[in-house]
Amino acid sequence: MAITQQQSGQLSTFSSLRRVYPFVQGALPLLFVGIFVSLAAVATALTIPFALRWLVDNPLSTGDVAQIVPGVAVIFGLGMAEVIFIYLRRWITLAPGVHLEGKMRNAIYVHLQKLPVSFHDKWQSGQLLSRAMGDISTVRRWISFALVQLVTSTIMLVAGFTLLFAFNAVLGAIFLICSLPLIIISLRFQRTFTTLARNSQDQQGDLATAIEESVHGIRVLKS
């Protein structure tokens, strides 16, 4: 029987994050540094349009060739700085996620050792293996990348819309209206993806159970 059928209810997002907090607590300083570096990348990316605006309004419009090369060099430097910041963000946030994954797997193993035999008779071993491997890997990827990206993307959207409205209110309003269908489609996709991901996890657990039972059966027959 799938895990979703055995659980009495699902935890809320806040409750789930609260349970993960003890494992990620030691990695928070590096995560904050990763978020800061990612914000620096966002700030650099938002600076590039200003440099392009200056390049178009001044050297290109006046035909001053002497200023074109420095302007292009500045834009190139900003692009390289953004790439470096993105690389540093991934490098900084990778280690905390790996350590988090290791601590959670050790905690699950210790907890399983303390459970009575009746629990293991009730639950499929493949489901436990899928949760201990696949689900924790998902948590690690979310902490290392998705959490940082969520914070920086939110700030980038707010800053981007603010700058766009500051440049031209009509253009900002048009862009906002055109974004509404994308927002609605994304929300609908999120609900569909949640259901499909849950079913996929259950199917992976069932598959792992079938493979493990087949392997044990082959070993028994060979014995």
Rank of each mutant, 00 (worst) to 15 (best):
D64V: 09
R191G: 11
F175I: 05
Q25H: 09
L60P: 00
M80P: 07
T194Y: 14
L60F: 01
V20S: 04
V72K: 05
R219M: 10
V158M: 10
F23R: 04
L176K: 06
H216P: 05
N199Y: 10
R90V: 09
L150I: 03
Q5C: 11
Y87G: 14
I174H: 05
F161S: 02
F119A: 00
K103A: 15
L150C: 13
I68N: 02
A210Y: 04
Q5I: 04
W91A: 15
P29T: 00
V69G: 11
L164P: 02
E82S: 15
F50I: 10
L187P: 00
R90C: 12
T47R: 12
A66H: 09
G26E: 06
V170P: 03
S61K: 13
V83Q: 09
A41H: 04
L60H: 00
A45K: 06
L60K: 01
F167V: 14
L30T: 02
A173N: 03
P59I: 00
V56F: 14
L94F: 15
T209F: 07
L46Y: 00
K114P: 01
A166Y: 04
V151H: 02
E213T: 08
L176Y: 07
L163R: 03
I155N: 07
M133N: 13
S38M: 13
R140I: 04
T4K: 14
L176G: 07
Q127C: 14
I155R: 08
S186P: 05
I184Q: 07
L207K: 09
T13D: 06
N199Q: 09
T162K: 13
E101K: 12
D121K: 00
V69Y: 02
A197N: 14
V33R: 07
L150S: 10
L28G: 06
S16F: 15
S186T: 08
L94S: 11
A41T: 01
R191S: 08
L157K: 01
Y21L: 15
Q7D: 06
F76R: 05
E213M: 13
A146E: 05
V215A: 13
V24C: 10
G172K: 03
L128A: 07
V98W: 04
G217A: 11
I218E: 08
Y109W: 04
L221A: 12
L39V: 01
L94D: 06
I3Y: 10
I86E: 10
V24L: 14
T4W: 12
T93R: 01
